[in-house]
């Protein structure tokens, strides 16, 4: 039987705001399937976002949902997780939201290794405001604020996350949707901060300016550009130019998780007090 998305989508809240050809719907559906697979109660999830196209996703799903200020989703999410460490806290964010205006919160959430799952929808552009270049816009690409081609070097989000201390880092794409389900399952199961960069397409504000003739071309570009990390690592360096790995790129189990460490301290103080009595 086909998956019943309606069980997770809020009645009357569709259609969504995303443009025809946008790949966010693919990721959206993956997230719902994954929550179902993991059998997490809808009451036990807080889905937090900032500002941008990706950040509109929480409005459509029947969880506890919080659509905050630009770049700050991780600050809000950290507060929620510290208040209720027994609950699942997830963040959806775009490339600009997570790594430009929210870059400081991103690296510090990674450093703390707090048990939050962060999905970064990377469509290489500020879509909602009409196609301005973001920290992930490739060099040379056209954007409304780079009308002569992007001169700004770009972030590699998984490397940024790993360098900042995230204990689980993965990358998937909207094209490799089946693989995305598996990555999200692993990310949510992981204890600690997990980052999944999800490559997405914005045909409206990125593709049209950059010689992608159709949304399909952008998906085919994903197919040609991204390959499983195991295969990627076997290639000699001259053959990896312009290619990127997908899959679990970095994982370190057993690192102290922030809430466990903090509430472990609370327990220790409690025992000390009782011992004294």
């Amino acid at each position: 039987m086909a998956f019943q998305y309606d069980r997770y989508i809020r009645g009357g809240k569709l259609p969504h705001i995303w443009c025809p050809g946008c790949t966010y719907g693919i990721v959206f559906k993956s997230l719902l399937r994954v929550v179902d697979t993991l059998a997490i109660s809808k009451d036990d999830i807080a889905l937090v976002s900032g500002i941008g196209c990706a950040s509109r996703l929480p409005g459509y799903v029947d969880f506890n949902t919080l659509h905050t200020t630009h770049g700050r989703a991780l600050g809000f999410a950290t507060g929620i997780k510290m208040a209720r460490p027994d609950k699942h806290v997830m963040v959806v964010s775009g490339d600009g939201d997570a790594t430009a205006i929210g870059g400081n919160h991103f690296i510090h959430a990674c450093r703390r290794n707090i048990d939050i799952t962060v999905l970064v929808f990377n469509n290489y552009i500020y879509g909602m405001t009409g196609g301005q270049y973001s920290p992930t816009t490739p060099s040379g690409h056209m954007a409304s604020t780079m009308p002569y081609g992007n001169v700004d070097p770009s972030f590699n989000i998984p490397e940024l996350a790993k360098g900042a201390g995230a204990s689980f880092v993965a990358r998937g794409t909207a094209y490799h949707a089946a693989g995305l389900d598996k990555l999200l399952i692993e990310a949510i199961r992981h204890k600690g901060l997990s980052v999944v960069e999800i490559i997405n397409a914005c045909p409206t504000t990125h593709g049209r300016r950059n010689k992608f003739k159709s949304p399909t071309d952008m998906l085919l570009w994903m197919k040609d550009t991204f390959m499983p990390v195991a295969a990627f690592e076997k290639l000699p360096p001259e053959k990896t130019a312009g290619k990127f790995p997908i899959g679990v790129l970095y994982r370190k189990e057993g690192l102290p998780e922030y809430c466990e460490t903090y509430y472990g301290l609370v327990e220790r103080l409690k025992r000390q007090r009782e011992g004294r009595v």
Partner: peptide, 30 residues
Amino acid sequence: PQIGGAFLQMEDEIAAMAAVIGGALAGKKA
């Protein structure tokens, strides 16, 4: 920590305000 409450020193003032609102929404007085 002595009373089981949550203390967070955040990475900046903006995040601190955000965390306080998140904590309050999750039921705490923040």
